[in-house]
């Protein structure tokens, strides 16, 4: 068995919250110091385990937002209604608090700098998190591979990483927003769901043979993946990551 493929069994590590950053009124980024963290690829996730005083435990998966940086990782958590883990992470956890994490996890919904094909990213809501890791990883690696990002969000104020995305768009990242509930004044399209015509206008055509990464709530991912395949993208190059609203 080749060295690179053998990872060993995964164990829980105790991380410490090193910093907290508000991204929107409901989402925030937690910067975690994880002793012994082995590094990760863009798109991978971590499992976070919370344990109550009575021993009850809850485990949730969160995408890693940051590029590999020693023993430090960042996750961005959107608070979901009645979410027993997200409520704590997005609202209560503070600097110095310990958290159990295990990872990195996943080898399929991943972008590596060795890839040479164009990359189409399609985000729904906080599904932008692992895609942001890919954008950051491309930049950190100095990769010249063409990337495009289509980001579907409810309204302008719910955009995560807004300032950074603005900067990256100014630096040449083709970035398109699709607003589903409320659009900025003067926006060319009325708010609404992503459809085939917007997808065709804002993404690489199938002839460019991009790898497509689609991340968001399950219904969003189902819709976008079906539209991409109907438009002529090879199903084998449409990689999806759904998240349930837990």
């Amino acid at each position: 068995m080749a060295r690179a493929a053998v990872l060993g069994r995964l164990t829980w590590r105790v991380a410490t919250v090193a910093a907290v950053r508000d991204e929107t009124s409901t989402a925030r980024t937690l910067v975690l110091d994880v002793p012994g963290w082995p590094g990760h690829d863009a798109g991978q996730h971590v499992d976070v385990r919370l344990t109550a005083p009575d021993g009850y435990t809850a485990v949730r998966s969160y995408s890693i937002a940051s590029v590999a940086d020693g023993e430090r990782i960042e996750i961005t958590v959107e608070q979901v209604m009645d979410g027993e883990v997200s409520s704590y992470l997005a609202g209560v956890a503070s600097v110095g608090d310990p958290l159990e994490v295990r990872g990195p996890i996943g080898g399929w919904f991943v972008w590596r700098a060795a890839q040479t094909e164009p990359v189409q990213l399609v985000a729904g809501g906080s599904g932008v998190v692992p895609l942001m890791a890919m954008v950051r990883a491309r930049s950190a690696a100095g990769s010249g591979v063409p990337f495009r990002l289509l980001y579907s969000t409810r309204r302008p104020e719910s955009v995560i990483y807004r300032d950074e995305l603005q900067g990256r768009a100014s630096d040449g990242l083709p970035l398109e927003y699709a607003y589903t509930r409320a659009a900025p004044d003067g926006w060319p399209r009325p708010p609404g769901r992503l459809d085939a015509s917007l997808l065709a206008a804002a993404t690489f055509p199938p002839a460019d043979r991009p790898t497509c990464y689609v991340c968001g709530p399950t219904p969003f991912v189902e819709t976008v993946a079906d539209l991409l395949i109907a438009a002529g993208h090879d199903a084998g190059r449409v990689r999806t990551e759904r998240f349930g609203g837990q």
Partner: peptide, 15 residues
Amino acid sequence: NTALDGNAAGGDLRT
């Protein structure tokens, strides 16, 4: 809509 992707099973499978 209760299904997720196999990606999310990665942690448990790695046990």
